[in-house]
Design a protein around this nucleic acid. Structure first.
Length: 202
DNA sequence: TGCCAGGCCCTCTTTAGGGCCTT
């Protein structure tokens, strides 16, 4: 049973909010965490085969000129599949990143086997006093290390990685033992009002 | 034609609506 402190934390930049509406990934960033330490990372722009709008250029700082020089999504996603193997995955608001991961992997006929946990759902349970649960707010709230760059894939994935490790540390203070990835997945489904009682029973 | 995300989660709820998050 793999522990929660070994995982790949990833983040996509995309052309929009929904692959079902035709949106594509334009950048992926990820950090590999083994035994609670970041040991490797992955970052690549990818050419979605069409232009992105000015909002996305402004929001991410990723221009159409940058994407024109990038490898196609299919090439990058194959390299990412090799990078992530079957590590369990983490993202902030994982439902968003999972639907893009699933859509891009489907295009290259790659079948991912691991689980996908969400640092946003975890934060809503174990940091209920935080002003809100946006990634940037939580980085400041928990005083996590950051290079000040936001909305680029590797920067966001790295910050989410630090957030994930902070969350695991906080949880372990309550249950007094390292938890499996599966246990954390279950924890993100426990009703908020029951979370601390649940932790002490683990 | 005109519309267009969607899962989570709370509440003035469950025969629903709206804010929070992600790009």
């Amino acid at each position: 049973m793999p522990l929660a402190n070994t995982a790949i934390v990833l983040d996509f930049e995309t052309t929009g909010l929904s692959p079902d509406m035709g949106d594509r990934a334009i950048e992926i960033g990820a950090v590999k965490i083994v035994d609670g330490k970041i040991v490797d990372n992955f970052q690549a722009l990818m050419n979605p085969g069409r232009r992105v709008n000015s909002f996305i250029e402004s929001y991410t700082g990723i221009s159409n000129a940058m994407l024109a020089k990038a490898e196609p999504c299919e090439v990058v996603m194959q390299r990412f599949a090799d990078f992530c193997q079957n590590f369990n995955l983490v993202a902030h608001n994982a439902s968003f990143d999972k639907k893009f991961l699933d859509a891009e992997f489907k295009r290259i006929n790659h079948h991912y086997q691991g689980q996908f946990a969400c640092s946003l759902l975890l934060s809503r349970r174990i940091s209920q006093q935080a002003p809100n649960h946006k990634l940037a707010t939580l980085v400041e709230y928990h005083q996590l290390s950051t290079d000040g760059l936001f909305h680029r894939a590797l920067a966001d994935a790295t910050m989410t990685g630090h957030l994930w490790l902070q969350q695991l540390s906080h949880i372990e203070q309550h249950c007094k033992k390292p938890l499996s990835f599966d246990a954390i997945m279950k924890l993100t489904r426990v009703p908020k009002a029951q979370i601390y009682r649940y932790l002490t029973q683990l």
